[in-house]
Design a binder for these strands. Structure first.
Lengths: 197, 197
DNA sequence: GAGCTTAGCGACCGGTCGTGCTCTTTTCTA
DNA sequence: TAGAAAAGAGCACGACCGGTCGCTAAGCTC
């Protein structure tokens, strides 16, 4: 079943590209089929329904996210340098990897946050896993480890700066978005790793 | 033309409600017509096209945003208290005013940031105006006024916390989102209004 | 290389999309 | 209160939607 597997990957990749642009719901099966050089009915040899494609897209995007952001960070020991790499890669992911559309994870979050169902559940599950990882990293940032509350506060701000970066760069057309985000994150690491009253 | 004006307002209001849920593109004219108790063709006595409705929706949402957030703040003198009211009202706007759907401005930003055209231009224009207002407020936060760069950094973080709040509350299901956002913003005001090397 | 399995195509389905057109009813104004 | 103007209903349109079915052709395995 080698050939079919390869085609499936191509379909999911293209579907993700289009979904990042127009939203998951906004992708039409005819457009998708055309883009991968298939007939519409050909798609259904690989997926049972459009919903089935949605699930595969979310799963695939989250997998790629892990590969791109976590893989290059985990070779470093826990601590500030690792967090810096993560943030750096995350910005790269939003800015370069999805240059034409913006980060699909942000887009899917907005699209799905009011649409209960297995698709939202899948996305939420993957995002919660990622958050758990980051909380662990933040706790390890200081020698007397950060409390859970401190780690949560730090995570909240980190994620916020990622979202702010996209908004600033893509919607407001701000060329300094990356600098703003990096500076804000650096300051966050400064005050979080510092031991003060 | 009294009656028509009222109907138009009803249409735009309902369209905004639905667009906040399903996206501007996701609103169908039949659903919209049903919801306001009109026939589909009846809609076209008030708007020339679906795009025309989109423009009216964005304009109307931004107007309401100004009324809800700025109006109660401008009675206060410039300074920290005014900024605190703005942030507070902004969170309220996201959390209560659009409880079922999440803030439509965030949703429209994600939906439109890769869709060039007059609709995106309109949204961007309104958002730039709002940003200009906030930059002025931040500059007035300290007695030796903040530099433009400092004000921009502060604005970036404020907007980030707003976005983070929605993501945390709606997508991650975090009940503490509001507390996290408020705490982060308070700390931002602390370190921004402080005069340090 | 025979034969089963799978990938993929083309035609087609019922339904919905946005948007015209015509005609009637309501509303406002002189 | 007559009559113009506005509001709205009804219907039909062509295009497109997600999805099914039967068929062929290619791929894979023994």
């Amino acid at each position: 079943m080698r050939k079919g597997e390869a085609t499936r990957v191509r379909i999911v990749g293209e579907a993700a590209r289009q979904a990042a642009l127009r939203g998951l719901t906004g992708v039409s099966l005819s457009d998708l089929a055309d883009a991968v050089g298939l007939s519409k009915s050909g798609l259904f040899k690989h997926f049972d329904s459009k919903d089935d494609i949605h699930l595969a897209v979310v799963e695939s995007v989250m997998d790629r996210f892990g590969e791109m952001i976590w893989k290059p960070a985990e070779i470093l020991p826990p601590g500030r340098a690792r967090l810096e790499v993560i943030f750096e890669r995350w910005l790269y992911w939003c800015e370069e990897e999805w240059a034409e559309s913006g980060c699909p994870i942000n887009a899917f979050s907005i699209e799905l946050d009011d649409q209960p169902g297995p698709l939202r559940d899948l996305l939420r599950r993957r995002l919660l896993g990622w958050r758990k990882t980051l909380l662990r990293e933040f706790r390890a940032l200081r020698d007397p480890a950060l409390s859970e509350a401190e780690a949560q506060a730090a995570y909240f701000q980190m994620k916020s700066f990622i979202l702010g970066h996209t908004d600033s760069r893509r919607m407001m057309g701000d060329d300094d978005a990356r600098k703003s985000a990096s500076a804000a994150f650096d300051a966050l690491l400064d005050r979080t790793s510092r031991l003060d009253a």
